[in-house]
Every structure is written in C-alpha cells, then in structure tokens.
C-alpha cells in the first residue's frame, strides 16, 4: 500500500504542476516546436506516466502469488541490513528536529542566525543524547563563535543579524 501511495502522491503533485504551468510560464510562439512550457510539461507528463506504470506494476506484483512468495524472500535477504538500520531510527525525534529547524528558519529574519540556530543547536545536542544542559550551552556558544569567525571574519559572509537587534 505504501508503494502505491508514494506513486500516487508523486503523480498528484505532478498533475498539480501541470495545471499551474500555464500560469507559471510565459507563452511564446513555438520555435522548432519548442516553447518555454515544452520541457516542463514533457517532464511532468513523464512523471505522471511513470507513476501510473509504477502503480500498475505494484498491483500486478501483489496479485501475482508466485511473485509475492519470491519477492518476500528476496527482499528479506537483501534488505536485512537496511531494516536493522531503519529500526534504529527514531522517527519522532526526526519530526521534532525538523520542527525545530523549521522554527529556526522562520525566526532567523527576526532574531538573527546566531541566536536562532544557536538555540536549535543547544536543543539538538539534547535530542542527540547529551544530557548535561550546561555543557550543551557551552558547546553551542563555542560553535556559534567558530561559525562567526569562519563566515564573517575569514569568508566575509555576513549571516543575518535579525531585525529585532538592528
């Protein structure tokens, strides 16, 4: 079911882009059959077509009992290592980390890169398993100072300071 869902989602996203293509591209008279829309539309229809093929192939495989037996054995043997690795991944923590990063990206224009990402770094150390908060603060501050030296002083790249501090 997950296989079919993944093809369906990708296919639907491609359909959405096909629908918005006229609004998101300019119209030009075709030159040798090419307009600015040609390539994107060929790609998007390609994705839709392949997604449909993918779904059909998955359904056929599922209903083919002979294949199902072979498939289960094959994937079990080949995918053993990956399964072990997947088991060790904590998806709730990934979700939490993603939320934190999203919040940092949203707050960078207001509180600046160093404060925003510094806080995320502090929490990320804890998520990663470092329990001592005081040490995590020290690590975060040292990392942000190092980033400031490398980016601002060595490479002359000015990271956002934040509108609240300007």
């Amino acid at each position: 079911m997950r296989e079919i869902m993944s093809y369906l989602v990708i296919g639907l996203i491609a359909v959405v882009f096909i629908v918005i293509t006229p609004a998101q591209t300019s119209y030009f008279e075709p030159e040798f059959g090419l307009t600015p829309r040609t390539f994107p539309l060929v790609i998007l229809w390609g994705i839709v077509g392949l997604s449909c093929i993918g779904m059909i192939v998955t359904v056929i495989r599922r209903f083919s009992s002979r294949y199902a037996a072979n498939y289960q054995t094959d994937t079990r043997e080949e995918g053993q290592e990956n399964d072990d690795e997947a088991e060790s991944i904590h998806f709730k923590k990934i979700f939490l980390l993603s939320l934190l990063t999203a919040a940092a990206v949203l707050f960078i224009p207001y509180i600046g890169f160093y404060v925003s990402v510094g806080i995320v770094l502090w929490i990320a150390f804890a998520i990663a398993g470092r329990k001592k908060w005081s040490r995590n603060i020290i690590y975060s501050v040292v990392t942000m100072v190092a980033i400031w030296v490398v980016f601002e002083k060595v490479m002359s790249v000015s990271l956002p300071k934040g509108s609240w501090f300007l």
Partner: peptide, 25 residues
Amino acid sequence: LDTAILYPIILTICLAAAYSIRNSM
C-alpha cells in the same frame, strides 16, 4: 567527536553554508 556533538554542528554549518550561497534566506 561524539556523533551527538558532530551532527548537530554539521546541521549548523549546513544552514550557514546555505545562506552563504547567494546571501538569501
């Protein structure tokens, strides 16, 4: 370096490097 320190630092470097590409949020 413990991975618990290494990977959060890489996350920070990635975000800073992303900004430095074109100075764009």
